[in-house]
Simulated scan of single mutants.
Amino acid sequence: MAEAQLQQFLEKVRQLQAFVALSEADPALRQALRDCNDHHQVVSLARRCGFEIGRRWGEQENPAAGDDNLLAGSCPAAGTEETRLLLEGPDLRLERIHSCDYANPDHFWYDQEEHEWVVLLRGSATVRFADEPEARQLTAGDSLWISAHRAHRLERTDPAPGSVWLALFSKAACAD
């Protein structure tokens, strides 16, 4: 581990320890922490208390810019997504999607003409399929195959620095 990464890790541990100590001393904060339903709510609560505990191991704050770096670039505004077309052919399209604290509107479901394979490169997200009782919790490295016309929706992505996706769309029939 490089010294800079070690210092980043130790600083996160210090911030976590301070946040824990504060929550043990403040009953209202402890209750607010107890009321959190997911990682993002905990990170947001910690941020309101002055602690930055959200960056995951190995994440750079803002990687070097460049079209060939899929993690580069600033985070879009909260509640939005930015899509960049990377490759397009007669039967496929490859996109980079950067989501920031984003969710589809209530009662909205995608019903796509194309099949989609998606991989989450950074952050986390919650995806719901209409034909499944529970939403799926995704973290960096997770991928999904979404057949054409399979109703799905995005229920949540990370706040800044956001969630970064790689999505491959295809019109060709594929084995499920």
Rank of each mutant, 00 (worst) to 15 (best):
F19D: 04
D67Q: 10
L86T: 04
V127Y: 07
A64S: 13
S124K: 06
L29P: 00
L138T: 09
P90N: 15
A32N: 06
R84H: 09
L92F: 14
C75R: 12
E88C: 14
F108R: 11
Y102P: 09
A103H: 07
W109P: 02
A64L: 12
P90C: 15
A4L: 06
R47K: 14
P90M: 13
P105N: 10
A65N: 00
A28P: 02
R150W: 10
T126R: 14
G50W: 03
D131Y: 03
Q5F: 10
H149A: 01
C36G: 03
E11Q: 13
A32E: 07
W117R: 02
H107T: 05
T157R: 03
L92G: 11
L120Q: 02
F169D: 01
P63Y: 03
F129T: 06
R55Q: 03
W145Q: 09
L16G: 10
L144N: 05
Y110I: 01
I97T: 05
E3T: 04
F169C: 01
D67G: 13
Q15W: 02
L70K: 01
D106G: 13
G66S: 12
A18N: 14
N104D: 12
R150N: 05
L87D: 13
L45D: 03
A151L: 11
Q15T: 04
L85A: 07
A64R: 09
Q137S: 05
R48D: 14
Q7T: 12
T139N: 06
R93M: 03
L85T: 06
L154M: 09
Q137A: 06
L29M: 03
R34M: 10
L85G: 04
L92H: 15
A77V: 00
C174M: 08
G73Y: 15
L166N: 08
R96W: 14
R156Q: 11
R48N: 12
L33E: 02
A18F: 00
P27V: 02
A4M: 09
V13M: 14
V127T: 06
T157I: 05
T157K: 00
E11W: 10
Q17S: 15
V127W: 05
R122Y: 02
R93T: 01
Y102S: 11
L22C: 07
A140F: 00
D68W: 12
Y102W: 14
R47I: 07
N69Q: 13
F51D: 04
A140I: 02
